[in-house]
């Protein structure tokens, strides 16, 4: 990745303008044309650097409830269990991690009852009886933007 791409990714993450010609504003900052910015964004999406371009909303303010869940999944069941878990649109993140509790997923749903229902359904479908639910008490930092310009790109 070259410097222009890295700089563009930083701009796109942090302050994508809410104005009529956002790509024009960005192009001036980068010293390239508006068309070049659009093409570059398309390329970065195609290459997989950008997962999505769009709005990020505050789920709490929209009345949604979230929680973090962990479960112990035997190695041979991982695939099957992750299919069950991932099928819920309310489950947005699911990771395998290096721990006895190896599957970690987040639920963001319209109500606490819906969260309970999802957990119950996962237990029923997978036969795994224990799902630890870790409710948030306080949030100190939530920064999903990554400093791309600051990381050294070997290739």
């Amino acid at each position: 990745m070259n410097d222009t791409s890295a700089k563009l990714l930083d701009i796109l993450q942090n302050d994508f303008p809410v104005e009529s010609r956002p790509f024009l504003t960005i192009s001036r900052e980068l010293g390239i044309t508006e068309e070049e910015v659009l093409n570059l964004v398309g390329t970065l999406k195609k290459e997989g650097y950008i997962r999505r371009m769009g709005a990020v909303f505050n789920s709490k303010k929209l009345g949604y409830k979230g929680t973090l869940c962990a479960m112990k999944v035997p190695r041979e069941q991982i695939r099957e269990v992750s299919e069950t878990v991932n099928a819920f649109t309310e489950i947005t993140h699911n990771y395998l991690r290096t721990h006895e509790f190896n599957m970690w997923f987040t639920i963001t749903a319209a109500s606490p009852d819906r969260i309970k229902e999802i957990i119950r359904e996962i237990k029923e479908e997978t036969g795994i009886e224990k799902i630890v639910q870790l409710n948030s008490l306080k949030s100190f930092k939530l920064k999903v933007q990554f400093d791309v310009g600051g990381i050294s790109h070997a290739k």
């Binding site: 809410v18 999505r52 909303f57 990381i151």
Partner: peptide, 28 residues
């Protein structure tokens, strides 16, 4: 649309508009 987006921002409903990256892909 712009007026509603500005209002969403003021209310804290809209956090930002922009790119969500694949962080593994960008080097972490």
């Amino acid at each position: 649309l712009m007026e509603r987006l500005e209002d969403f921002k003021k209310q804290g409903i809209l956090k930002r508009v922009g790119a969500v990256l694949r962080h593994r892909k960008v080097g972490y």
